[in-house]
């Protein structure tokens, strides 16, 4: 599992690859907490995510609620299916002053 965090034009671009799971979720959480603020505009590129478990989905959900905006720009089929399976593909509750949603239009487009 690799997490790459880039800052570009006021946005935080997260690139999450491999097979993140509960075994690495603590480190993942720590990295995200270190780089994100409630004002962050987050773009997630998960095009090379091969596998994901519920612990990682829970973490992504928490991130989406925490930051100002959260968009999945690229999703792998595995992530899309997992989000849809548990019903986390619906918009999440918006944080104060923000409009976070999961998934993004990309996920919605794929499904359509």
């Amino acid at each position: 599992m690799t997490l790459q965090i880039d800052h570009s034009g006021g946005q935080v671009i997260l690139t999450l690859n491999g097979e993140p799971s509960v075994s690495g979720v603590k480190e993942l959480h720590a990295s995200l907490v270190a780089h994100l603020t409630p004002e962050s505009k987050v773009l997630l590129n998960a095009s090379h995510l091969r596998r994901v478990d519920a612990a990682v989905l829970q973490l992504l959900h928490a991130v989406a609620r925490y930051v100002r905006t959260f968009d999945v720009t690229e999703s792998s089929p595995e992530l899309t299916q997992a989000l849809q399976l548990v019903g986390l593909d619906k918009p999440v509750e918006a944080p104060p002053g923000g409009a976070a949603r999961l998934p993004t239009s990309e996920v919605a487009r794929r499904r359509a």
């Binding site: 509960v22 603590k26 959480h29 995200l32 907490v33 612990a55 829970q58 928490a62 925490y66």
Partner: peptide
């Protein structure tokens, strides 16, 4: 699910 900063990610 607790806020991100309070979350113990290993707990469900």
């Amino acid at each position: 699910v607790p806020p991100l900063l309070d979350l113990d990610p290993e707990l469900c």
